[in-house]
Design a protein around this nucleic acid. Structure first.
Length: 470
DNA sequence: CTATGGCACGGATT
DNA sequence: AATCCGTGCCATAG
């Protein structure tokens, strides 16, 4: 049980439990902020000097030797190396992502997004407006969307909302076109508008984005056609045009193209919380799993503080003591979090090894409860540990950690490959029986749902392989 | 009559 | 306790 681990560290308290749970559910990025604010507000806590491995010069975990260099570099893949990896460099800057890490093939620019955009628009603005532009650009999220409203900015800078809007329009037309929008929808509209200046676009594309954004993003072509009062074929063409030429997340890479370059249709992930790579980047080596710890050094209780508490005056001693306790609790909880994450990943990587190495088709159906049972922790612990987290796979893809627990992904990929290989369109019933032959027994109705999820049209609308691009 | 989507139910999962 | 997911049944389109 969970208690066992607590008892190793310290007697169990409710505060202890509550805080560990909270920390467990935090993203590495959120953890970074939490630690910073705790560090700033609690004098008893200190960050000690970073340690680097003398041979490979990577930042070392709080205790012990370098997990990479000190281990035998055997070729066995079945035992992954799992460790907590301090990577403070991930989260420097004012909440804005820089380029992430060497093998990140998602980042397109070497300087950070705000600077990049600001340089483009700066020349067209006078100094006062430039300040507003800079302000706006520091409030972008990883996808390139504004996290504040026009009114807030206007009030903050004492200017008219219309003035702010004009600046936003300028920003939107800068390189990652659509950056600085407030929603994917708005970003698409801006991109469409600009595209229309140089190239003919499907006439109803704008209306489709404006009125049926949700249908569009869920690939509901049939419904889309109905709402626009056009044929399904046309709807499909519009959707295709949009997904090929526009990008709903201007700050990041592309959207739902069914083929090669990854990127799940629904969500684009930003910073990974966990890195899975091959040792020495050679694919027959064992796996290395790094659990990101957004810190440069080690967190501990300041020994000086502990000493000086003895000579503290009467009235201060209470407050100091509580600081001390808070700090100690915090450190323990962080350790607890790391420990849990480490155990989870250790097991998870072994169980889903085939998926990690060979892709979605080899994903094993797995539930959180199952892992919880094996690790002898409560189900909710695993739930917390998995939710909102992103994992970077050896091939560079960043996927939500919940994908490791997707019950139907392997069936859906099987379905996709069958349909890709089909010579004439197969009906859902036929598909269902073909899947059953491969060992995936699902109801006909379910096949239909999976088709929809994958954005594949029903059989009678499917025949033509290549569609015309406007 | 066949293929498919909608609605809703029940069991599993979180 | 709330939510998600697979499925069955039924209506509708072709």
């Amino acid at each position: 049980m969970l208690q066992t681990h607590y008892q190793i560290l310290r007697p169990l308290t409710t505060a202890h439990l509550a805080q560990t749970m909270t920390l467990l559910s935090l993203t590495a990025e959120e953890l970074h902020q939490t630690i910073e604010s705790e560090l700033a507000s609690n004098p008893a806590l200190e960050l000690v000097e970073e340690r680097r491995c003398p041979t490979c010069s990577r930042l070392l975990p709080p205790r012990g030797n370098c997990p990479i260099c000190s281990r035998p570099q055997g070729t066995t893949v079945d035992e992954p190396i799992v460790f907590v990896s301090p990577r403070e460099d991930f989260y420097t800057g004012s909440g804005i992502s820089k380029e992430d890490f060497p093998e990140d093939n998602y980042s397109t620019t070497t300087e950070d997004l705000p600077t990049y955009v600001l340089r483009q628009v700066a020349t067209e603005l006078d100094p006062a407006d430039r300040r507003i532009a800079a302000y706006l650009l520091t409030h972008l999220d990883e996808d390139g969307f504004l996290t504040i409203t026009v009114m807030e900015v206007a009030r903050f800078h004492h200017v008219l909302p219309s003035g702010v809007e004009a600046i936003i329009r300028l920003i939107q037309r800068a390189d990652p076109i659509g950056v600085g929008s407030s929603s994917p929808q708005e970003a698409l509209l801006v991109q469409l508008e600009i595209l229309a200046e140089t190239r003919p676009v499907p006439p109803l594309a704008e209306q489709a984005i404006r009125t049926s954004m949700d249908l569009l993003s869920r690939h509901q072509y049939v419904d889309l056609a109905r709402s626009l009062k056009i044929s399904v074929r046309q709807a499909q063409e519009i959707a295709r045009f949009i997904s090929e030429n526009l990008n709903p997340f201007p700050g990041r890479s592309h959207w739902g193209d069914q083929r090669q370059p990854a990127a799940a249709a629904t969500q684009v992930y930003h910073h990974p919380d966990i890195l899975i790579t091959h040792l020495n980047e050679s694919s027959d080596n064992r796996l290395v799993v790094e659990i990101i710890m957004p810190l440069a050094g080690t967190l501990r209780i300041n020994p000086l503080f502990r000493q000086s508490i003895r000579q503290a005056s009467e009235e201060k001693i209470g407050a100091w003591k509580s600081d001390l306790e808070r700090a100690s609790l915090f450190v323990k909880c962080i350790q607890q979090r790391n420990h849990t994450m480490q155990r989870l990943m250790q097991r998870l990587v072994i169980l889903q090894q085939d998926f990690i190495l060979h892709g979605e088709a080899d994903l094993k159906p797995l539930t959180r409860a199952q892992i919880a049972g094996e690790l002898e922790v409560h189900e909710s612990t695993i739930s917390r540990a998995v939710s909102n987290k992103a994992v970077q796979l050896p091939n560079g893809r960043i996927v939500p950690m919940s994908m490791f627990f997707d019950r139907s992904l392997n069936v859906r990929t099987a379905l996709r490959t069958i349909i890709e290989a089909e010579s004439s369109p197969l009906s859902d019933t036929e598909l269902a029986s073909l899947l059953a032959k491969q060992g995936y027994v699902v109801a006909r109705r379910t096949v239909a749902k999976y088709r929809a999820m994958e954005g594949i049209l029903p059989a009678h609308l499917r025949h033509n392989r290549s569609t015309v691009v406007a």
